[in-house]
Design a protein around this nucleic acid. Structure first.
Lengths: 124, 124
DNA sequence: CTAAAAGCTCACATCAATGTCAGGGGCAAG
DNA sequence: CTTGCCCCTGACATTGATGTGAGCTTTTAG
């Protein structure tokens, strides 16, 4: 599969896929002429990267968490675990923040409804 | 209360507070010499803005949602309601994305634990 | 009164992911 | 062979909130 196919299957632009590779988030084998080739499993890999990016992680953080290219070893695994639990906490906190913002928004919506109801009753 | 006090009470930098004002998210009364002065209620206002910004809303969106300076009128209220429900949906979706990313992270964490356990058992 | 601390405006810098354009190959079908 | 489509690298642009610094004025504390 070439980069255009992977792009079509994941929704990530070709530009983004090259960027992911540049950041160490994705690997590719190259044809003799230099074109990138991917396997089916890379589709899942890109989806994971997309999910983490959409969750507000930086590419550097994702690279630290997911040993995609480097040989896994114990020290690296322990360090990755540390980063993962830190990021997990950050995600939980972000979820809480979003929920709080949604609550605040619900209050505003209610206020606005009340305003409109009053406005209609008072005779516009 | 001057800008430094408001900054201390909200954690927003002076720069950010001026930026919020520039974007129409915050109002201030000015002393004859031009210094900004705030009331206690503005602390809450800044906290709301911070919550929405932290939730990934743009300042433009926040401005559209929260009629902070303009006279409220019916049309404006209806339009704000529309934007608010759109943003509420966006927030809910973002929460889902974050939860999905956290699940993916949990899987990685488990994989990593399994790897370390196996590594310890095999004799490092 | 004087010096430090805080404010003001304006302008430029930053970061990160992505868009976009330019200039140049590679490969398949007519 | 040539036309068309996909790919390559490299560079510059963008967006939005915030940092930072300069140059100057106001307020406050000693």
């Amino acid at each position: 599969m070439r980069i255009g196919d992977l792009s079509a299957r994941t929704g990530a632009s070709r530009r983004s896929l090259r960027y992911y590779e540049e950041q160490g988030l994705l690997v590719s084998s190259r044809s003799p002429s230099g074109q990138r080739h991917y396997e089916d499993e890379h589709v899942q890999r890109v989806r994971l990267v997309q999910a983490f990016l959409a969750a507000g992680m930086s590419s550097g953080t994702i690279a630290e968490m997911t040993p995609c290219m480097a040989e896994p070893n114990e020290d690296r695994a322990r360090q990755a675990l540390e980063i993962m639990s830190r990021e997990r906490a950050r995600l939980s906190q972000a979820i809480d923040h979003l929920a709080a913002a949604r609550n605040a928004l619900d209050n505003l919506i209610e206020d606005n409804h009340a305003y409109l109801a009053r406005s209609a009753q008072d005779g516009s």
